[in-house]
């Protein structure tokens, strides 16, 4: 049934392009998860370095696609890190935490920020001393990370990802947006 849902969205977008009506799915990647039954949207922008459509493009005619797709050695290739794929909005983050029995919540800000405010149940591991190896975090757990605005936590998340952790979530907008969207009593700084 999954192809039906996806094929019909594709048909809808074709028709909108022809009619030149509505907001087309350009620059936006729509992700559908049938098991969770949710849709997510990730914005995709033009890569100025793109080999095909970038400023100094190297692909100027059709190439050998069999070779292009087969030539990648398995060992050297690593899946690309896409920070947005780990992001959850404050609401999604809160819901996921509540329903995830293996959830471990990590605050990667510094001690002084922790003292201003923190999310209940969190454990503090400041980025200044963050090391996946000594963190004691289990790869079996779902690790939920947050910082002030979401930047430091994505760096910590990337370190964990490189170290082989797979189940990782980042609070989009950090505790600052959390205070706005979820906990109006929390101080913002």
């Amino acid at each position: 049934m999954l192809p039906g849902v996806v094929g019909l969205i594709q048909a809808t977008e074709v028709i909108k392009l022809i009619l030149d009506n509505g907001v087309p799915l350009k620059g936006r990647l729509l992700l559908y998860d049938a098991m969770k039954m949710n849709f997510k949207e990730v914005s995709v922008s033009k890569d100025p370095e793109c080999a095909l459509c970038g400023i100094s493009a190297t692909i100027t005619e059709l190439i050998d696609y069999t070779k292009f797709c087969d030539a990648k050695p398995v060992t050297s290739a690593q899946e690309e890190f896409n920070s947005e794929s780990f992001e959850l909005s404050p609401f999604e983050f809160k819901t996921a935490l509540e329903y995830d029995p293996t959830a471990v919540l990590i605050d990667v800000r510094e001690q002084y920020e922790w003292e201003i405010c923190h999310i209940d149940g969190a454990r503090l591991i400041p980025t200044s001393s963050f090391d996946p190896k000594s963190s004691g975090l289990s790869k079996e757990s779902s690790i939920y990370l947050y910082c002030y605005k979401g930047q430091r936590s994505i760096m910590a998340l990337k370190e964990l990802w490189k170290a082989g952790y797979t189940n990782l979530k980042n609070l989009k907008g950090g505790i600052d947006l959390w205070a706005e969207d979820i906990d109006p009593d929390m101080p913002q700084y």
Binding site: D33, L52, C53
Partner: peptide, 19 residues
């Protein structure tokens, strides 16, 4: 159980699949 849909239209300023 996952699907992805988007429009690539680099001619109108959008990204392409390689982006």
């Amino acid at each position: 159980f996952h699907g992805q849909i988007t429009i690539f239209d680099p001619d109108s300023g959008g990204p392409c699949y390689r982006c």
